[in-house]
């Protein structure tokens, strides 16, 4: 779509675009190109000399057990967060869509965790599960289970998944509610007259009609789990114990700022960029087509 009526100026549009373009070039395009460039170089241990090594950094990464471990951890983490956050949000949204009385109150009370910062959410869950003073770990002790996520990698993973999913539920809830509002009442009433009960209506009508929302949310949740959960991992486990919760973004941070291995860190950045670009393309192709039935 294009405007028919436009202004005939030659210079003004560039002036208007200048701030956005300047920020984009200086803080986005330049650093990204630096990452690309550095991913092809290697520095010696003292940072005195740099030489061109081609794709050696990438080859090194894929031969590195720690990196492959981080890939596995990220896959498990994002699958678990996506499944948990989507599943519980869908149940709550279907319920909130059903009720007549009190629906506004329910909605308000389920929406606000969106506003809690990931790092803060992490600290709240850390407090609940603190091995010595946490309420939940205390309750688990009463039934005979000794929770200690500082020693047990599986428990640490479970804790970051819980914190990450908890924060994301309200986002998914809002989008499922919007999707449910778009399901026509007439269709549901017709199905009810034909004798379809609530469960049958959900499986045969509501869920298929929600599939565009579902697909969109899967992509958004994967992006969230990959990139926005850094604060949770950093605050709750610091990637530990023994790298059990070291997701890719955390590893880039650690290798770049703590390990100071620039070539390796840049190569990791480039791989992450490729992942974001892939996910963005998937998301936008979907938005253009709008899978409808």
């Amino acid at each position: 779509m294009e405007k028919r009526a436009v202004f005939p100026h030659r210079v003004l549009p560039y002036v208007l675009l200048a701030p956005q373009i300047a920020v984009t070039l200086v803080f986005f395009v330049w650093p990204a190109s630096q990452a690309l460039y550095q991913s092809l170089l290697r520095q010696d241990a003292f940072g005195l000399s740099t030489r061109f090594v081609g794709l050696e950094n990438f080859a090194g990464l894929f031969g590195d057990r720690d990196y492959l471990h981080a890939v596995t951890v990220t896959a498990i983490f994002s699958a678990a967060v996506t499944a948990l956050a989507l599943g519980s949000a869908l149940v709550l949204a279907v319920m909130a869509d059903r009720v007549v009385r009190g629906s506004r109150v329910y909605r308000t009370l389920l929406v606000w965790p969106y506003a809690v910062a990931p790092a803060v959410a992490g600290v709240l869950w850390l407090f609940l599960f603190n091995p010595t003073i946490g309420l939940v770990s205390f309750a688990l002790r009463q039934v005979g289970y000794r929770w200690n996520h500082l020693l047990n990698g599986h428990e640490a993973m479970l804790l970051v998944v819980l914190a990450a999913a908890w924060k994301q539920v309200s986002y998914n809830f809002i989008f499922f509610l919007a999707g449910l509002a778009g399901v026509g009442r007439a269709v549901l009433e017709a199905a009810a007259l034909d004798g379809a009960g609530p469960a049958r209506r959900f499986v045969s009508i509501v869920f298929p009609l929600l599939s565009p929302t579902m697909f969109f949310l899967v992509v958004v949740n994967i992006v969230y789990a990959f990139f926005e959960t850094f604060g949770i991992v950093h605050a709750v486990t610091g990637g530990g114990p023994a790298r059990a919760t070291e997701i890719l973004v955390y590893k880039v941070f650690k290798d770049g700022f703590v390990g100071l291995d620039l070539g390796r860190s840049a190569a990791q950045s480039v791989i992450l960029m490729a992942i974001v670009i892939g996910l963005t393309v998937v998301q936008f192709r979907y938005v253009e087509r709008k899978v409808h039935y």
Binding site: I21, V29, P31, V249, S269, V276, T280
Partner: peptide, 17 residues
């Protein structure tokens, strides 16, 4: 160019930025 920024969150270009 503006669209490109969507694909470059801080997390993927930490060190150079």
């Amino acid at each position: 160019l503006i669209f490109l920024t969507l694909m470059l969150p801080v997390e993927v270009r930490i060190v150079p930025t």
